[in-house]
Write a protein that binds this DNA or RNA. Sequence first.
RNA 1: GCGGCCGUGAUGGAACAGGUAGACAUGCCGGGUUUAGGUCCCGGUGGGGUUGAUCCCCCGUGAGGGUUCGAAUCCCUCCGGCCGCACCA
Length: 976
Amino acid sequence: MSETTTAAEAAAPHRYTAAMAADIETRWQDFWEKQGTYEAPNPGAGELGGDPDMVAKPKKFFMDMFPYPSGSGLHVGHPLGYIATDVAARYQRMTGHNVLHTLGFDAFGLPAEQYAVQTGTHPRESTEANIVNMRSQLRRLGLGHDQRRSVATTDPEFYRWTQWIFLQIFDSWYDAEADRARPVAELVAEFESGRRPTPEGHASWAELTEVQRAELLGEYRLAYASDAPVNWCPGLGTVLANEEVTAEGRSERGNFPVFKAKLRQWNMRITAYADRLVNDLEGLDWPESIKLAQRNWIGRSEGAHVDFPVPRQSARPVESAGDAGGGPAGEATISVFTTRQDTLFGATYVVLAPEHELVADIVPDAWPEGTHQTWTGGHGSPRDAVAAYQAQAAAKSDVERQAEVKDKTGVFTGAYATNPVSGEQVPVFVADYVLMGYGTGAIMAVPAHDHRDFAFARAFELPMRCVVEPADGRGNDPADWDDAFVSYDARVVNSAGPRITIDGLGVTEAKAKVTEWLEAQGIGAGVVNYRLRDWLFSRQRYWGEPFPIVYDEQGVAHGLPESMLPLELPEVDDYSPRTFDPDDAATTPETPLSRNHDWVHVTLDLGRGDGPRAYRRETNTMPNWAGSCWYELRYLDPRNDEAPVDPTVERYWMGPREGIPHGGVDLYVGGQEHAVLHLLYARFWSKVLFDLGHTSSSEPFHKLYNQGMIQAFVYRDRRGIVVPAAEVEERDGQYFHRGEQVSRQLGKMGKSLKNAVTPDEIFADYGADTLRLYEMAMGPLDVSRPWDPRAVVGQHRLLQRLWRNVVDEATGEVRVADTEPDEDTLRALHKAIDGVRQDLSGLRFNTAVAKVTELNNHLTKQSVVPRGVVEQLVLLIAPLAPHIAEELWHRLGHETSLVYADFPVADPAYVVDESVTCVVQIKGKLKARLEVSPSITDADLEALALASPAVASAMEGMSVRKVIVRAPKLVNIVPS
RNA sequence: GCGGCCGUGAUGGAACAGGUAGACAUGCCGGGUUUAGGUCCCGGUGGGGUUGAUCCCCCGUGAGGGUUCGAAUCCCUCCGGCCGCACCA
């Protein structure tokens, strides 16, 4: 911008420019802050209670996915969703709602740690500095947030309650009969009274030692420590949840290899909620794609367990209850999971995962006579063959397994199991296409009707039997087939035996009959199986919530009493995670908190009546996701020091309501990347808190909206090196950087691609209102679209024209007239009101901007601007461009802010045109237009259309066969 | 491989429930204001044909086919792009 006053500026000293925008915007931002304009009152007399009239209004609770306070600042892509929710929230304020809208910070996480390692600053310091910086950047956008409610997950007063919720989860178990979580104390009471017997294999409650009791309860608790195999990522130095590992078996963050390792880690029993997490999706107003992603991730499938008896070779006693316990001595049982019980007669072999614990028990000393050459893997004994295969499978990474999907490998165990329906002896194989982590880790193979089994059977020359009649004419002999026949809509054949016959039944009937039979025989049962696993909840990090858990001398975990919360992060010498060679699977994690010996080893009185005792603290910290699992609740009641949220306040803002029995936030806007992470975890916590009676809402977010990404052009030179987008010049559709031609592609916006545009640049050139309008006008909120630096000016021009319609650029005087608007203008106004209302409530911001623009353009063409109309226009644009709207509102003589002014209401009489253009088509082709009254009858319109000269000439020599009339918009004439 | 979404001017995108395709904006073209520039103003702008000109005609929503009086919109096949899951029994 030029410093000297130009001639144009001298001619128009009161033009709306970037400088004037900056002045207006900061002035109103200060005003709003001072007035507490956006402070939404809670019901009741609490600290955030307020105006009862406001509380009595219908409420709206709008949220954005809160940001990580990064040190590198914002680019224009970041606030897209924040602007959208702000516009929606402002619209709701003007339509008589008590609107809660704020934004907090998800501030635990790796970047602060890494920054701390580089610079020596404490993560808390850099985090707080970043939050201050981000707050001021966001403030400059004019977002109407209730600042009193903005929380940071790193705040001890916040994570005190994260820890408290963890303890609630730790102290509860899932009662499958009641289908909800209950306090562990109630479970203990049931064990003590004998009302609930201890599970098979355990002594009675009274006979158990304290350690044994703790172990038993650990099998019930919703938060529990276990030694199950976890995802260990040496490159990051921490273990990870399944959701954080990519399909390629690498860490989502950093792309390091991930290995399975047996480590004692904390887990959350999210699997207990699998069914409810699937079922409750139905009532949510979420994008189908996200619901689908969650359904896929949970992976509910209905099927059955089926027992296949197999001779036991070793003399080992039966170790544990369950699958292996049923058979007579010398016999083991392979329990398989299948979703196709109906194909049981077609099961011609059985496969165990290489890690299956039964493998060792069933392998005989020598190959049975006549064993196929291909089955032995060239080994002299089954033991050698299986051991070699197991070693080979263990050494394979997930990536390698993926690569070999087409080529099935495996080896015969030497054992034969009995097919329970046919009594047939079927060979038992070990193969890595069966995964230990899904189902029972064992399958019955039905090669004729499963693609994978078919491929394996072909490779190993195993028999196939067709038991579902192919409907595609391929015949009933699998030997002639290229692939398995898989269908759920077919008839069962070849499935008659001495014990059960299902021939002729449809797949569904056959399934039901087989399941019933299995249950009656006690050799199987219908089960529902899930792909979802429990959520691995501990991390080897410094910058996270410490677990409020201590271990006594016997190693039993105890929750800290509420009075000891928050358990604050201790000072340590070194915050950095201990990382390792990314490929070295043999490493083990080290927790930064363990470096503070004095903090770890403490003497505490936990209030259990046993006085002060020595304890050792848990040194893992919680994953990043913990704080975001419940932060919506804290927005409601951020200063409550007796509970995470007051129940009355929670019910007011989030409780069940008309058509929304689950309750939850009214609108939640954020990116798609959290489909199976944050959004799943938060739903889980929400349900636990609901079950335990702490909240009235069993879903956190009723309506979810995914905003698209703002992309930007990426310019590369001939060597493919990215050049700064700001330095590229365009000439005749070609792009040049320092004289050299460069190529242009669309990509993410960001520093690494040298194409980031910061809000500050746009503020300097145009102002915040222009930025807001441009982001809203670019396209539908849920679609990704490129940032076009040249196009921003269009929205600035709109504001300039709006300004000019109210204010004389030369004098600064208000130039509107107190005249009555003409009919045309009234119709333009009321159509705009009607359209903008619909668009804003439907989150169609781009078309709302277009309608406001149209009305403004209409006024621009008028010689006099009627005050009544322009005032309504100012209100219409207020949610989108609140600063200029306030300024004009003020200049138009209003004393109070328009934030709570009534949004204009359309007069239906003016929403319809006085006359409408009727289209006359002949065979669907446009032939003529007629100006007609909107209330014209079909008959009148038909007569009018047929009488029109254009129709008469076009219909010359033809007769009318049929006329379709859709008064008042259309007549279509069909000639014969 | 399975599942889902999407292809409209030079560009971002409109078109609510099948009924005037291209609203609104950028860019571009022409004109104005200005010493000049544009973050100013006014007008034009899908392609082709025709006319002195208004008019008028034809074509047009990735390609092909279908349903319909009428299709960007519904159905089928194909092509292209994006996303999710992926040996899940």
